[in-house]
Design a protein around this nucleic acid. Structure first.
Length: 924
RNA sequence: GCGAGGGUAGCCAAGCCAGGUCCAAGGCGGCAGACUCAAGAUCUGCUGGCGUAGGCCAUCGCCGGUUCGAAUCCGGCCCCUCGCACCA
């Protein structure tokens, strides 16, 4: 075991300091300094236990909050819980039906047996996990979150707030109604189709495709051919109907359509007025003819097995020149018609034919047809041009023609739109999910031009990390369309104020919420009655409209004015295209300009290999409190800060985290070692002071952009080397070291606060280091830093020579550059600084005035000018510095060292090579 | 498709925006040594090639360009990853 773990029980240390911080309530946001900083993270959804990956972002927020607190800001760092929507409900449902996996999961994560039955109730789920997040995660990690402001999105006060927000949106005409097409289970109602498959048992990755149903005329009825490529109507040669199934005749408006039975079902959900009036077998249709619109061509109807009754209408038009399926199916029945080519594209004559032959596809059951279709579709869409067979569209690119033809067909009534999943989606109840038309769906009008423009302009004023995201955001805001903001079903959330049967969906109820943290404190403390929080209240507090009905309103408003706007909203990269844009837009839409958010910080994830989720086999899957126990909180905090840029995904790896645990131990040991020094003043002290301040400067500059990686690297890793070198050089000045430790401990406090507090106490300090001012760097003597680096470089060179030659030297001569070389350097530096130009001409003009060997001097000057382009030169007393370090060098090199001007022997004629910052060396 | 990010030595990973101090930080792994009965941990040194004087050569996905000078800037190409809306 490491000394550290024998001497220090870090778990005990964490508990000790956390208790003191929390007892001292130092986390509470107070208005004292006149300068404020508002940071929060995108609150987590209540979806169960979190894993070590989630702690990355939370840790960043705490480090930044602590850093800003030490830099003279009143910091408000609130947090809450996103309880709205499905996750909590879904968890409760699983518990209710005694889902084995769920029970197992709860037990493994340490859920007490007596709690489990209670979790059948979604509200209990919210209550329980809120507590877990606070007690087992945030407090365990020492986060100085303002715990007096905790809130969740299903509390009464919050709901009032959201209703106010929606009335504001309505007032500003940003709520609009229009038809919407959404996933729907005939048994369970609206469901969410997403990859986590909360509501569904299959098909979470399904996309909604938009098929164009082109109406072919057939015996006074309609054969609606479903296609994703309406532009290929010009190349239609025949129809495909499955002759082994029965179709239905459906009355649609005043038309009669022939579609598969299933299609009729689906269409009923998407269109008004659809009714099955008869049946017709596929074999009764096959062999007849129908008429294609647009081209007004009569085409035969052939049988095809791939005409799947489960996909769209079950009726397919055939474009054999451009659709591999069609080509192969025709070939299977002996090519009764010839393909018509309608798209010109480089590298192909008849695209479908060629790819099918190239891939050696044998018949219409070949699975590779899907791949062939993809290839042709992509190529044609991007590179294809409509040819002379396309009346009126010739010369147009395929992607343009597609849109125009589609629009024309819809407007002329010869086509309809049908939405269909790209794959089967099955509800938890076992029923197949369909797409249902919601005729009067409410949307938030994010497409609003004025709102979009103002939001984009505002982004320009914001501090956004990473920088790349700042450039990306305007494009996202531009792209962001209207969002369906309410839905029906059994989920948690706020009733829509204009129709209380609907619930506001989870993205839309989490946009202005940082503002509510200000109010949450007063609600939590019972200082305001939720009932009195009506529109007048919110208008007064947030918008400054109207008057306060009670004195407490004034206090709340005052506080809101002090803390708002948000300085940093921190969240994972998953928020880049959804949450952050609406966070900005809702503030712009509703709040006065001075309350628009000032900054966003988007961090990337902790993953397993290749972006996989954290898994048991690869580590990181243990409950967070177990990980905290295993590695120590400060080690984990340092790990998150230092493992990589915040803007790349990092792979969790037990062994790597273990290294950070060791790093904490080493840092602690080093501190103890430094603390025990009781030496006297020495030459190297000056170097230590400058080297320390230089790294401190690096850290402070990095933190200006919240670059925690760079800062922690300087403070923990580079600083470690500096202290080690100082001691190796014989340094041990108690006064200087103590002074520096006072600064260093403060500097590392935001990152590893528990260890820092312990160190601070060891230094004999009484107050919390957490509440101290962050140290500022003092003057840095670059000459000393340079001199020391010349020394180490010289020693490296000696080592190198020794290695190459194999000489075991007993005498080492170090020749410092002679005074005239330093004089010329001084002149060169002066020219550079005063005239901004340094070249042979102006330098030699000055050199001429000197009494030196002109040939030697000009050679030297030429080389000097060259070298000065690469390295920073300065005039320093190298000889004196080396003399002072002579004993050290002798000890290290195990040989007698002679520091020479022109006063020692020079048998190998090395002295002439001596250069500033690069003494000549001779060994014997 | 739309949008974004990335390819650096045996592996992980900094550096790139602000070109020179990059023969590329740090870590892991490997080798050697110290300590130890031993193992582990810890500490020290080495870890692209060549080299009997601090040097030379090679390397930052590939090709080209700009520059006195390119991992870094510009252009083209190849490959990988991620997000894309009712999911938080």
């Amino acid at each position: 075991m490491l000394d550290f773990f024998l001497l220090m029980d870090f778990e005990e240390m964490e508990r000790k300091w956390q208790k003191r911080w929390f007892d001292g309530k130092i986390y509470e946001a107070r208005r004292e300094k006149g300068k404020k900083f508002f940071i929060h993270f995108a609150y987590p959804g209540i979806s169960g236990y979190l894993h070590v990956g989630h702690m990355r972002g939370f840790t960043y927020a705490d480090v930044i909050a602590r850093y800003m607190r030490m830099n003279g800001y009143d910091v408000i760092f609130p947090a809450g819980f996103h309880a709205t929507g499905l996750p909590a409900v879904s968890l409760a449902k699983k518990v209710a039906r005694n889902d084995e996996k769920m029970l197992e999961y709860l037990r493994q994560n340490g859920c007490p047996e007596e709690i489990i039955p209670k979790l059948k109730d979604p509200e209990e789920v919210v209550r329980y996990f809120s507590r877990v997040y606070v007690e087992d995660y945030w407090k365990k990690f020492g986060f100085l979150i303002d715990y007096t402001r905790l809130m969740n999105t299903i509390s009464l006060g919050y709901k009032k707030f959201i209703q106010w927000q929606f009335r504001q949106l309505m007032k500003k005409e940003l709520l609009v109604q229009k038809p919407h097409y959404a996933p729907y289970c005939p048994n369970c109602g609206p469901v969410a189709v997403d990859k986590s498959e909360t509501d569904i048992s299959e098909g979470g990755d399904a996309e909604i495709l938009e098929f164009t149903l082109i109406k072919f005329r057939f015996d006074g009825r309609i054969l609606p051919a479903a296609t994703l490529r309406p532009e290929t109507i010009f190349g239609v040669t025949n129809m495909w109907v499955n002759d082994s199934i029965e179709y239905v005749i459906a009355r649609v408006g005043d038309e009669e359509w022939i579609v598969s039975e299933k299609a009729a079902e689906k269409l009923r959900y998407q269109m008004e007025d659809v009714e099955v009036v008869g049946r017709i077998h596929g074999s009764e249709i096959v062999g007849k003819k129908c008429v294609a619109p647009i081209v007004n061509r009569e085409v035969p109807i052939f049988p095809a097995e791939f005409a799947d009754p489960d996909i769209a209408t079950g009726i397919v038009m055939s474009v054999p020149a451009h659709a591999p399926y069609d080509y192969v199916a025709l070939r299977d029945i002996g090519m009764p018609v010839e393909p018509i080519v309608i798209i010109d594209i480089k590298g192909y004559e008849i695209p479908a034919k060629e790819i099918v032959e190239k891939m050696g596809i044998e018949n219409q059951r070949d699975e590779r047809l899907e791949e062939a279709t993809q290839i042709i579709y992509k190529d044609e869409f991007h590179k294809g041009v409509m040819n002379e067979n396309c009346n009126g569209y010739a010369g147009m690119s395929v992607n343009e023609a597609k849109e125009e033809i589609k629009e024309r067909m819809f407007s002329e009534g010869i086509a309809e739109l049908m939405r269909e999943f790209s794959r089967r989606v099955i509800c938890r109840c076992g029923e197949e999910v369909v797409i249902k038309r919601v005729p009067n769906q409410w949307f938030i009008k994010y497409s609003d031009e004025d709102l979009t423009r103002k939001s984009i302009e505002w982004v320009n004023e914001m501090n956004i990390f990473p920088r790349e995201y700042k450039d990306e955001l305007p494009k996202i805001l531009e792209w962001y369309g209207d969002r369906a903001c309410i839905r029906q079903g059994s989920w948690l959330g706020t009733p829509f104020p204009f129709d209380e049967n609907w619930i506001i969906e989870p993205i839309s109820d989490s946009t202005l919420y940082p503002a509510y943290y200000i109010i949450a404190k007063y609600v939590n403390e019972g200082k305001i009655d939720v009932e009195e929080m009506d529109d007048d209240f919110f208008n007064y507090v947030f918008l400054g409209e109207g008057a306060a009905r009670r004195e407490i309103w004034e206090r709340i408003k005052e506080e809101f004015e002090y803390w708002y706007p948000v300085d940093i909203n921190l969240g994972g990269k998953e928020h880049k295209t959804v949450h952050f844009p609406v966070f900005i837009m809702n503030h712009v839409a509703i709040m006065p300009r001075r309350h628009y958010p000032r900054g966003i910080f988007a961090h990337w994830w902790v993953t397993q290999k290749a972006g996989m989720k954290i898994s048991k086999s690869k580590g990181g899957a243990e409950p967070i409190p177990d990980a905290a126990k295993k590695y120590g909180v400060d080690a984990l905090r340092l790990y998150y800060c230092h493992i990589g840029s915040p803007f790349v995904d990092v792979e969790w790896d037990d062994e790597t985290v273990e290294q950070y645990k060791k790093r904490i131990a080493r840092t602690w040991n080093l501190f103890q070692q430094l603390l025990s020094l009781n030496g006297k003043k020495a030459e190297i002290d000056e170097w230590l002071v400058s080297a320390f301040n230089e790294k401190l400067k690096v850290a402070r500059e990095a933190m200006r952009e919240f670059d925690m990686r760079k800062a922690s690297n300087a403070l923990f890793f580079e600083m470690h080397n500096i202290f080690n070198w100082y001691m190796k050089r014989g340094g041990g000045n108690e006064g200087v070291v103590k002074d520096i430790l006072h600064k260093w401990v403060r500097a590392i406090a935001p990152f590893t606060p528990h260890m820092a507090e312990e160190m601070w106490e060891n230094l004999g300090m009484k107050e919390f280091v957490t509440l101290q001012n962050y140290p500022e760097e003092e003057e840095i003597d670059y000459g000393v830093l340079k001199a020391e680096s010349v020394l180490t470089k010289t020693m490296d060179d000696i080592e190198e020579i020794r290695k190459v030659t194999g000489i075991k030297a007993s005498n080492i001569y170090i020749y410092i550059a002679p005074p005239w070389k330093w004089k010329i350097l001084e002149m060169a530096l002066q020219l550079e600084e005063e005239e901004g130009i340094l070249n042979m001409k102006n330098l030699m003009e000055k050199v001429k005035e000197m009494d030196v060997n002109m040939k030697e001097a000009s050679q030297y000057a030429a080389k000097l000018i060259q070298e000065m382009r690469k390295e920073k030169f300065m005039v320093i007393d190298e000889r004196k510095y080396m003399e002072n370090a002579k004993e050290f060098m002798e000890r290290e090199l195990g040989a007698k060292v002679h520091i020479c001007g022109d006063d020692c022997p020079d048998p190998a004629n090395k002295r002439r090579h001596a250069f500033p910052h690069r003494p000549a060396i001779y060994m014997e």
